[in-house]
C-alpha cells in the first residue's frame, strides 16, 4: 500500500504505476457533472486543484452541528467517471490536478493528458459508500452548493486512509484496457472448447 499525502507532488505521482494500491490522506475536492460543465463554460473554479485531487462523487451530506465542520457525510462512494471524458483533458491541463478518483475509468484522451501533465486515475470501490464516508475526517467547506445542490456541489473533504487502486497511470497504462484485452482473448480461446468436452473430461477423471 503506497501512502499519499496532500499536496501530491508531480514526482510522487509520476512514480505510481497502474496496479498500485494507494491510501490517500489530506484534502480532496468532489466534482461531478455540473462542476465539469461549469468549468467548460469558462466560469471561475472556486478552489485550487494544483497538486490536488478531484473525486467524482455525489455524496449524501447532512447538516449536523455536533460533527466536525458542521456537516456529516452519510455516504460518499464514487460515481461513474466516463461522463466527464469530454472535459477532463482540459481540466487536467488548466488546473494541474494530480489525482482523479472515480469509478470505471476514463478515455484515451484523458489518459494522454495524464501522461503529459503528470496525473493518475485512482479507482475507488463502487458501492463502498459507508466506508468512504467514514474516511472523511472532516468537511472543511463546500463551494457552489447553492448553484448545484448538495449532491453536485464541490465538497472540501479532509480524508484519512482513503483507499483505492491506481488504474490509469502517468505512463499511458490503463488497467481497464489491459483487463478487457486479456479477458476477450481468454473468452475467444474458451469458445474453442466445447461443452461436451468438459463433461467428458471431468467424468473421465
Amino acid at each position: 500500500m503506497k501512502r499519499l499525502t496532500f499536496p501530491f507532488d508531480e514526482q510522487t505521482v509520476r512514480g505510481l504505476r497502474a496496479g498500485d494500491a494507494v491510501s490517500i490522506t489530506g484534502r480532496i475536492y468532489t466534482g461531478r457533472d455540473r462542476f465539469h460543465k461549469w468549468f467548460a463554460d469558462g466560469r471561475p473554479i472556486p478552489v485550487c486543484f494544483r497538486d490536488g485531487a478531484l473525486y467524482h462523487c455525489g455524496p449524501v451530506v447532512v447538516r449536523d452541528e455536533a460533527a466536525a465542520g458542521g456537516w456529516r457525510v452519510v455516504a460518499a462512494g464514487p460515481t461513474t467517471s466516463v461522463r466527464e471524458n469530454p472535459y477532463e483533458p482540459d481540466f487536467i491541463a488548466a488546473t494541474g490536478v494530480r489525482i482523479i478518483i472515480g469509478k470505471g475509468g476514463m478515455d484515451e484522451r484523458t489518459l494522454a493528458a495524464m501522461r503529459e501533465h503528470g496525473c493518475v486515475y485512482v479507482q475507488a470501490v463502487g458501492g463502498a459508500g459507508a466506508l468512504y464516508a467514514a474516511s472523511v475526517a472532516r468537511v472543511a467547506g463546500v463551494s457552489l452548493v447553492s448553484e448545484f445542490g448538495a449532491a453536485e456541489a464541490v465538497w472540501h473533504f479532509d480524508v484519512a486512509d482513503f483507499r483505492g487502486v491506481v488504474a490509469m497511470d502517468a505512463h499511458g497504462r490503463s488497467l481497464f484496457a489491459d483487463v478487457a484485452a486479456v479477458s476477450e482473448r481468454r473468452l475467444a480461446s474458451s469458445r474453442r472448447k466445447c461443452y461436451t468436452d468438459g463433461i467428458r473430461s471431468s467424468a473421465g477423471r
Binding site: V60, G127, A130, L131
Partner: peptide, 20 residues
C-alpha cells in the same frame, strides 16, 4: 478487503452499505 470493511462498518452502524 475494502468491500468487506465497508460491509462490517455498514452492519455495525445500521446504515446503507451502498448509496444506490
Amino acid at each position: 478487503g475494502t468491500i468487506l470493511d465497508n460491509c462490517a462498518l455498514a452492519a455495525k452502524r445500521g446504515v446503507p452499505l451502498c448509496q444506490d
